[in-house]
Nucleic acid binder design. Structure first.
Length: 562
RNA sequence: UGGGGCAUGGUGCAAUGGCAGCACACCGGCCUUUGGAGCCGUGGAUCUUGGUUCGAAUCCAGGUGCCCCAGCCA
């Protein structure tokens, strides 16, 4: 990365400043996912920021699972998160768990109790809530707030030992019940949870730390210098700083930034889960989902996702509850940009229409040379069989052409890519007046696609040889929702599901594609980028549409209709 | 309503007191054996009012709008 393209933003500036002033003499960041769901595109921003800030400063990144609540977390998600993060290319020096520090954290809590800075509160959850006050009214001190240290120590120990039922008591920091920032009104540090067992510590613990207590202290214990998080934690920063101050331990710096979201999709775990559970999509890896596993299956290259997120930039813009909302069109543009450079070109006919070259010899088969990737000469060429009966795309023929239509129609000559110039002579229809065959004649002198007399055609169309082609299934995806902001309203997102978000087509691909394996990516010429799906069989490969090629004709057509 | 945060073309991000720029989208053109890619170009923005200043997107004051916080979630 050159100096000119070196990204700069308020976080990188802050980190550089900290190094310069000596506040820190190294950089260590942490990635703190809670293992309670699959990673989606929104997570990538935080992941990349943490990773790159560390990397750019020759520092370290620690992947630390924030597993402080056994009622929500599962090992299954730990594995999935690691897999997805690796796929993105993120590297860490070690994997840790908040639960690794439960013992030490408990010692620190006792220290706070001994200092008179924390107390066991016997109020019910309802009472705690009622006494917290409101935005405009201060809270009320708990009647148990001034318990003496011995009693607090005893009660805390017994909480830990499981002597009390869930919800009966909590450990709270003693700060200020009248504080204008609600997070400072004696925040809960530990709550009692007997069941279920924790995914790592089993039944050892009956009390579990809250986020505010665990996260910041874990940062401190791990020597994290910069704890980068999303905007909604801004109000927690005073508390984040209060604990280490009291404890006299290493003080990391928290910096907040705006989260990333995409339009035309939903990102909340609960809503995504509903889509899966109600069968609106095929699963968490359905290519229409915004999860990383779905994007992987759809064929998005990880580099493109990373590039997209980086180009979006970092800011503190807070104009929606979802953070910054990126236009899906921008993501697609970046994906196209990557794929254009990398993808092997192939020919595939999604909606077949038979084209018969009447003056082509019945039994002749010619091997045509086709370029694998015009953007990459090293990709070489391949042979594609050509014969008398072909399939072309239904969209590439019109009996009566609209204005500006350059493709095949009676009397018009077009080029069959890498093959010949052909001129349409007539069509054959069935009893329902539907076109079943298009007939044409070819010019034998134009083999390869160029006319010796120098005449030009306005269009080149793709094709496959009917007797050589391989049958294939194509899954065409469109945005999952019809509205830019489907999150609006509780039921709203279900009501604006796009009924055409999946369109399955059966057609043909050139014979070379018989050997494709899941994960292979191609550009099907003039159509889009596709990725071989895991549902493929030897008999019939399945291709997912990653993203369409830009389609100027469809714009013209749309305008024609207006 | 108390506290915290944010306002720059349609969207996202720059400009750190000195000509408001970049990307995507949109529109027009060139080129093309992908109506792809590439290339060229047009239009369009500093929330508002006042102040400081030779000069303000930037600094100050007021206003307006939007986002977050009243979990024993993270």
């Amino acid at each position: 990365m050159t100096d000119e393209t070196k990204p700069t933003d308020f976080i990188r500036e802050a980190v550089a400043e900290d190094l310069k002033t000596g506040r820190f003499n190294y950089v260590r960041t942490r990635l703190p996912p809670e293992p309670n769901g699959y990673l989606h595109i929104g997570h990538v921003k935080a992941f990349m920021i943490d990773y790159l800030i560390a990397k750019e400063n020759k520092g370290e990144l620690i992947l630390r699972f924030d597993d402080t609540n056994p009622t929500k977390e599962e090992t299954e998600y730990v594995d999935a998160i690691i897999e997805d993060a690796r796929w993105l290319g993120i590297e860490w020096v070690k994997i840790t768990y908040a639960s690794d520090y439960f013992d030490e954290l408990y010692e620190w809590a006792k220290k706070l109790v001994l200092m008179g800075k924390a107390y066991v509160d016997d109020q019910s959850p309802e009472e705690v809530s009622a006494n917290r006050g409101t935005f405009t009214e201060p809270g009320k001190n708990s009647p148990y707030r001034d318990r003496d240290v011995e009693e607090n120590m005893d009660l805390l120990e017994r909480m830990k030992n499981g002597e009390f039922p869930d919800g009966s008591r909590v450990l709270r920091a003693k700060i200020d019940m009248a504080h204008p920032n609600l997070n400072m009104r004696d925040p809960v540090m530990y709550r009692i949870i007997h069941e279920p067992p924790h995914h790592r510590t089993g039944s050892k613990w009956k009390i579990y730390p809250m986020y505010d207590w665990a996260h910041g202290q874990n940062d401190s214990m791990e020597g994290i210098t910069h704890s980068l998080c999303s905007l909604e934690y801004r109000d927690h920063r005073p508390l984040y700083e209060w604990f280490p101050e009291q404890l006299g331990v290493f003080q990391p710096r928290q910096i907040e930034f705006a989260r990333l979201n995409l339009n035309y999709t939903v990102m909340s775990k609960r809503k995504l889960r509903r889509l899966v559970e109600e069968g609106r999509v095929g699963g968490w890896d359905d290519p229409r989902m915004p999860t990383l596993r779905a994007m992987r299956r759809r064929g998005y290259p990880p580099e493109a996702i990373v590039e997209f997120v980086m180009r979006m930039g970092i800011s503190t813009t807070a104009t929606s509850n979802a953070g910054v909302i990126a236009d899906i069109a921008f993501l697609e543009a970046v994906v196209r940009e990557q794929l254009n450079k990398q993808s092997l070109r192939r020919m595939a006919v999604l909606k077949p229409l038979k084209l018969v070259i009447d003056n082509y010899p019945d039994e002749l088969v010619e091997e045509m040379d086709a370029i694998n990737n015009p953007e990459d000469p090293d990709a070489g060429t391949r042979k594609v069989p050509f014969s008398k009966v072909l399939y072309i795309e239904q969209d590439d023929f019109r009996e009566t052409p609209p204005p500006k239509y350059y493709r095949l129609f009676p009397g018009n000559e077009v080029r069959l890519r890498y093959a010949y110039l052909v001129k349409c002579t007539h069509v054959v229809k069935n009893d329902n007046d539907e076109i079943v065959e298009v007939h044409a004649t070819y010019d034998p002198a134009t083999r390869g696609g160029d006319a010796p007399d120098g005449r030009k055609v306005k269009s080149t169309i793709h094709w496959v040889s009917a007797s050589h082609a391989k049958e294939a299934e194509f899954r065409l995806y469109d945005r999952l929702f019809t509205r830019e902001d489907p999150e609006e309203g509780e039921e709203g997102f279900i009501n604006c599901l796009n009924p055409n978000s999946l369109n399955i087509l059966n057609g043909y691909v050139e014979p070379l594609l018989a050997q494709t394996k899941p994960g292979d990516r191609f550009q099907f010429e003039r159509q889009g980028y596709f990725c071989t799906d895991q549902d493929s069989t030897d008999k019939k490969p399945v291709f997912n549409l990653t993203v369409q090629l830009k389609d100027t004709w469809s714009k013209i057509e749309k305008k024609n209709k207006q």
